[in-house]
Design a protein around this nucleic acid. Structure first.
Lengths: 152, 152
DNA sequence: GGCACGTTTCAATAGTGACTGAAACTGCTG
DNA sequence: CAGCAGTTTCAGTCACTATTGAAACGTGCC
């Protein structure tokens, strides 16, 4: 990993750390975005990034669980390799719908515990969630269509 | 604050804590969503939620900076009151565009530091960011139109 | 079977940052 | 001006958790 690459990994790490992710998690993500070959073993990741094997194991597991990274087996090799999952970003965007619905549920759950005469604070959130719940699926469909066009 | 309300605040807090926010921050948000009257002083919030005055001051400031909460002066009173900012959720969604663009920048920045023969990992992210950069403004416009319809 | 390499688990450590409590500060009231 | 309620600031404490290092655990090769 040269200087420029190191700087890039740091940039990605800084960005995602701002939203509460751990440094190691974000560094692995950043490195997997640009490393060559794209398929890496845990031991290589640890070596490349100067992290312990334990950290890589743990953080990589969360990446896999979140669907950002997948295990691959390279023909002829018997080691476990990991790479950025193609289409992962798309999936993250698609799964946003679940979070929107959770917000909507939060709004619904508020109704019984607040005085009925001023529900506006909560109906606003509910309406918003409703709007996105309707708009999100067609938007995702358009997204998929457009991205496939680029990668035939 | 009765039991049901307490439970609701806890529910909201649990939800937002999952995404990296602090407990106090999320509790204040949850309580401001349902408390009556909606306008509260810092001292009241501290008392209601069992937080120290210092914590309330700090967390409330971040709420104000993020645009979720605003200061209001109630006629005749001279105390500082705070409430959930009307339209705050809408604004949060609108400002999502900034984060999308940041992701797009991250993708652009990757180009120089990776071998040119396999740029797919990064172009995917770039295309995605481009898609949202184009779609987001009209989507926001539709959102505003629809929500205004509900609150004439 | 034994060896080498990679991965997982886990106890211990280090570092961070949320939260508190007290003290300083502000602006209003009598 | 003294008194008071509310707010801000900040040093210190505490809890949490990210990270490490080492030890156990595979798993395929010799």
């Amino acid at each position: 990993m040269d200087d420029a690459q190191h700087q890039y990994v740091d940039k990605v790490a800084t960005f995602f750390t701002m939203f509460g992710s751990t440094r190691a998690w974000a560094e692995i993500l950043g490195w997997l975005m640009i490393c060559e070959p794209a398929e890496r073993t845990q031991a290589e990741l640890a070596e490349d990034l100067g992290l312990s094997a334990g950290t890589v194991s743990t953080q990589l597991r969360t990446h896999v669980q979140l669907g950002m990274v997948e295990q691959v087996r390279v023909r002829g090799e018997r080691v476990q390799r990991y790479r950025l999952k193609p289409g992962a970003w798309r999936e993250v965007m698609t799964s946003e719908l679940g979070r929107i619905q959770a917000l909507g549920d939060l709004a619904s759950a508020a109704a019984p515990v607040m005085p009925g005469d001023r529900p506006d604070r909560v109906t606003e959130l509910g309406d918003l969630a409703g709007f996105f719940a309707r708009e999100w699926p067609p938007l995702m469909a358009r997204m998929t269509a457009e991205l496939e066009k680029g990668t035939p």
